[in-house]
Every structure is written in C-alpha cells, then in structure tokens.
Design a protein around this nucleic acid. Structure first.
Lengths: 156, 156
DNA sequence: TTGAACCTTCCAGTCATGGGAAGGTCAAGC
DNA sequence: GCTTGACCTTCCCATGACTGGAAGGTTCAA
C-alpha cells in the first residue's frame, strides 16, 4: 500500500505521515524497489491510532507515549490513565480560561450600543491603564499542540 | 523612556515590543542619538491597550483592527462590537470542542482501572479502526493565535 | 577604566501542518 | 513504444506569536 492509499485509509495526510516518520512517531516505512513507501496492515492501524489520539487533542509527544504503551502488551493501565488524566486537566484549564475571556467580552459587548456612535465600553476597558474593570488578566495557558485553538478547519 | 522601561511599564516584553513594531502593529518608535528606541506616554498607552487585548485572547490582527478603531475618535461602536462578538463566537466554538474531547476522555478514563493490569478502554478506543465508540471526531477548530491552548505559562 | 546592564540587529527554533518546486515512477490508452 | 497524468520522492519555505541567543554598540556608576 503506497502513501496515498494509506492516507485515504486513515485520514492522515501524506504530509503528516512523512512528518510522523521523520520525528520518529512511526518507524520508517518499508520501501519498494522504486523507493516508494510501502505500508502494511500494522502501519495502517498505527496511523489510525494516531489519528484518533489527535482527534482527542493529544500532542505528538503524548501520542508517542500512548503508542509505546499500546505496543507493549504488558503495560500497566495506570500509565495510560495518568496520561489521559493529565490531558483532561490541561483541557479543563484551557476551557476555564477561555470561558473567562469570553464571559468578560460578553459583558463588555452587552454594554456596547453597536451603532453609529463612537462610545464603546469595550475600547474603554482595553484602554484602562491599570488592567481594566473586568480584570480577566491571569495565567495564560498555552498548549504543546495547536489543535484547540482556532478558526474553522476540517479534518476529513 | 527606553524599551526596557516601556516593557516594565506595560508588561509587554522587549522582544514583543520590537515584534509589534516590525509587523506594523505600533508605529516605529522614535530613536535617540545612539539609536535606542524612545517611547512616550502615548506609546505606552498603546502597548497597554495591546496587552489588555492579548489577555482577552485577541489575535494580533484583531488587535490591529481594534487599535485603529481606538485611534479613530469617530469610529462607530458597531465595528468594535462586531469584532468582539466574532471573537466570542470563536472562543465558544473552541470551548465546546475542547469540552467534548475532555468529556470523551473522562468517560474512557472512568472505565480504566489504572492499576498494574494491562487492560485499558482508553487504548482500546484509540485502536478502534472505525473511529472509536465515543466518536468525538468532528470539526477541529484552530486559532489564529496560540494563546488558548496549552500548558502552563505565565504572563507577568 | 572597567564592568555590568543596558541597547541594537539578525538568525534560528518552537509545534503541527500546508504549499510548492524539481524530479523520478507507474499504469492506461494510443 | 510513447505520451499523459496521477502518483511518488526529497527539499525548502511559510504559518502565529512568540523565545533565545549571538555579536556588537552605549551608558552609567564605581
């Protein structure tokens, strides 16, 4: 199975398959005589695993850990659970922060007429030299992977 | 006021001040004879504005729009409100997505013993070739700026 | 005069991913 | 056998919003 077929079978782009190989997430694929990558059943299953893990927002590094646990028939489920729980905590922290931002902005927008007049509590708050009335400022949390964050983009 | 003082006065790093200048978010600062940047009151106010807007999760592009509206005494509040509301919608979409991920993982983790035994519903779900029981797969939303997303990092 | 604490520009890296160029390979139809 | 187009290969570049560091100039106080 060449890279295009593997991509269609797993929903992982050819670009990403090569990338995952280059960073060592998957082992180098076999090659045909003409130097084409040749994927087998097992490779496809690993790519599907990776795809699912990305859909759950795991970083490539976390996926590497999960993959090696997956490959190890004797792994203790404790380790898998720990990774998952840490990831859940990360997600929850980001959610809380973004909700605080959204709520602050909603409050400001509610007070803004949104018409031809220039008066606007949103700009007034941003101009507050001591941090603004709503004081949303807090720890800003950033992710190892940019999956959560952003403007529409579909994954087939 | 040199760049270090401006940085301390606004909480924006010197690196970022130079970056904002390079991308045209702020106008080029005045220079002293020795080519040091020289910031005035107005520059400091703009940097504080930028800082506040970043704390609310606006992207540099959005901040550019907000800044130019701020500078325009006659701007219609409608435009400001539109930017804010779009940003709120973006935040809400990301929050919903991340909550779905977190909930799916929580469900899986609940069924995982987390002990020495290898059996683990989390890995089993990731291995599902048809997408897993929980089917969290959906549109993945990504942000123009990586502020929301991630692992602890503080902004002074 | 020396040294540290500034400042300057420039270049590179981050993370996961897409875009594209330049060139090799393969299969179908003529 | 030859052309065509759809593949494949590697390589480099770009994204956003930063951080880090090198190499060198400036300022100020001891």
């Amino acid at each position: 199975m060449n890279i295009g077929q593997a991509s269609r079978a797993t929903g992982v782009s050819t670009k990403m398959i090569r990338y995952y190989e280059s960073v060592g997430l998957i082992r180098p694929a076999d090659r045909t005589d003409s130097n084409y990558r040749d994927f087998g059943e097992r490779d496809v299953r690993e790519l599907q695993f990776i795809r699912r893990a990305r859909d759950l927002g795991f970083s490539v590094e976390e996926i590497g850990q999960l993959l090696s646990l997956w490959r190890d028939r004797a792994r203790p489920s404790r380790e898998v659970k720990a990774i998952a729980q840490k990831h859940v905590a990360d997600l929850d922290a980001r959610v809380a922060e973004m909700q605080a931002m959204a709520d602050a902005l909603r409050t400001l927008a509610k007070g803004c007429a949104g018409d031809d007049r220039p008066d606007c509590p949103i700009l007034m708050d941003l101009a507050e030299r001591d941090g603004g009335v709503l004081r949303v400022r807090q720890k800003v949390v950033r992710s190892p992977n940019p999956v959560y964050s952003g403007v529409s983009r579909t994954r087939s």
